[in-house]
Amino acid sequence: MEKEKIIKVESLDFFYGKFQALINVNLRVEKNQITALIGPSGCGKSTFLRCLNRMNDLIDGIRISGSIQIEGKEILDSQIDLVTLRKKVGMVFQRPNPFPLSVFENIAFGPRVHRLARGEELESIVRHSLESVLLWDELKDTLNKNALSLTLEQQQRLCIARLVAVKPEVLLMDEPCSTLDPMATLKIEELMRILKKDFTILIVTHNMQQAARVSDFTGFFLMGELIEFDATSSIFTAPGDKRTEEYITGRFG
């Protein structure tokens, strides 16, 4: 039986003004798997990721065509409710960006704006979210501490916990480890493997080893095109395209 595809992208084109950043991208993402997007700088992988929660809408002068369906719903439809979409499709950024509030308030932010819970229920969401990113034991006594005083790794975990609190389906991670040291990076990767039980994860990374270590599927982007998309094991052992092979063997990029 074929696994459920949670995201279906068909003939996606994306323009910044006159520049075409994505060219006819077609891709299907399996539920509860980790999908890595790799490629050299400027290849469009981050732009692609930001299409999935419509974060690109913040930029002036963009144009997008094609189709992106998430759980069967067309998200490029101009009528779609961005609040619902972004609640369902959360994003972790390159630099940890906790709000300048307490640890508790950071996690409570999402449930509060979506009116999911209050009082004790909210406290249990905060606890559960911190537990799910393995931060609860470290921070349970300092929930009122300013989130900016945490280490970068803790901050990034907190940002993930902040998403978990609104119970999304998909987690988009835009180079989530690029500001972290190797040890912290390994810990976040470990966390991703745990989180994939509950979430579908897409990760953009510069680091090919990371893609190889952590992902189930890998897509290789080059100059706005999705050159190859396959199970990670096949991409890294038997790439179908010469350009993919050259990239993963470090010939360029």
Binding site: G90, F93, R95, N97, P98, F109, V113
Partner: peptide
């Protein structure tokens, strides 16, 4: 800007982002 992005990416509206962040 990252605060604003973080808030919007959590599904907060523009006004919620202004008021709470």
């Amino acid at each position: 800007k990252s605060y604003k992005e973080g808030s919007l990416a959590l599904g907060a509206t523009h006004w919620q982002t202004i008021r709470r962040v």
